[in-house]
């Protein structure tokens, strides 16, 4: 997957303005306004209606705090796993040739294409006592389904392509001369990786991990099946917002949703900054 980066450093080159600017920008702004901005503003207005005291009381209630903690912890676990697994996959897919590589490469996109509810249903069945992996893990004393491990598993599954597909193009673009130079200087493979390769892919890798983390925080469909949804133990923040909505408690739902929204926006900005950094790095290393 390629990611959008604005090439802000590029010089102003367009001498003549191409046609269709008003039409295309107008359409874009109109669509963004009606589909994204106005609904989000509706949420923010609802949040403003609550008032700071009440808002704080809702989001600092023990159950909400527990839900945020569980969501963050599981998302962190999933992201750490994906940081390693995603990097491994990107590395193996770019650097090595082996039979079935195209299939493995295509499989990396499964979590994007597979509906999350289907993923949740399947993972739950697979890791439960009568699935393929459940009995094996149970013998080892590990319970995945209906625990925080299950939440982390579902999050990891749905967000792994973000890491792989962000790191992969950077690795592909890397100039082999750098590594060859290091090799001629007698560096060992591990040293080459840590000193030459890793710094070059670091921004992209971090950007991928940030996006994966953001996606994990918001994941819902896959998790509701596998989590067991026990308050204080396996209830995630998105589910709590949903439950509040069903309880007719719109203030509660809006407050929790706003916190998640704020998290998402911060992570989005971080990820975009990292990607700008990454694209500069790529330009520079070319």
């Amino acid at each position: 997957m390629t990611t959008i980066t604005t090439n802000t450093g590029a010089p102003f080159r367009a001498k003549r303005v191409l046609p269709g600017f008003t039409l295309s920008l107008g359409t874009t702004l109109l669509y963004m306004t009606f589909i994204v901005l106005i609904p989000v503003i509706a949420l923010i207005l609802k949040g403003a209606e609550i008032g700071p005291d009440r808002f704080w009381r809702i989001i600092s209630s023990p159950r909400a705090v527990a839900a945020f903690q569980i969501t963050l912890t599981a998302a962190l676990m999933a992201t750490v796993f994906n940081a390693v697994y995603g990097l491994l996959m990107a590395w193996v897919l770019v650097r090595y040739e082996f039979r079935g590589k195209r299939i493995v490469d295509a499989l990396m996109d499964v979590p994007f294409a597979l509906p999350t509810a289907v993923a949740g249903l399947s993972l739950t069945a697979l890791f439960s006592a009568n699935g393929w992996f459940g009995p094996v893990l149970e013998a080892m004393g590990v319970q995945v389904v209906y625990t925080i491990w299950g939440i982390a598993l579902a999050m990891a599954f749905t967000s792994v392509p973000f890491v792989v597909r962000t790191v992969q193009p950077v690795l592909e673009d890397m100039d082999p001369a750098l590594e060859q130079a290091a090799l001629t200087l007698g560096a060992r493979p591990w040293t080459i990786f840590t000193r030459v390769v890793f710094p070059a892919i670091l921004p992209a890798w971090l950007a991928g991990c940030t996006t994966a983390f953001a996606r994990s925080l918001g994941e819902f469909g896959a998790i509701v099946f596998i989590a067991g949804n026990l308050p204080f133990r396996t209830e995630i923040a998105a589910l709590l917002a949903y439950i509040r909505l069903e309880e007719f408690d719109y203030n509660g739902a809006a407050a929790i949703a706003l916190v998640l929204l704020a998290f998402a926006l911060v992570l989005l900005v971080v990820s975009n900054l990292l990607q700008v950094w990454a694209s500069r790095y790529r330009e520079a290393s070319r």
Binding site: I4, T6, T28, L29, M32, V36, L37, I38, P39, V40, A42, L43, L45, K46, T211, A214, R215, L217, G218, E219, F220, G221, A238, L239, A241, Y242, L245, Y250, A253, A254, A257, L260, L261, A264, L265, L267, L268, V269, S271, N272
Partner: peptide, 23 residues
Amino acid sequence: LVTLIEIPFSISPIIAGICYLLL
């Protein structure tokens, strides 16, 4: 604008649903 376009990517779909219900 580019960041704005990416917003739906990082927002939980549940929250998108809540936004539409509130509107």
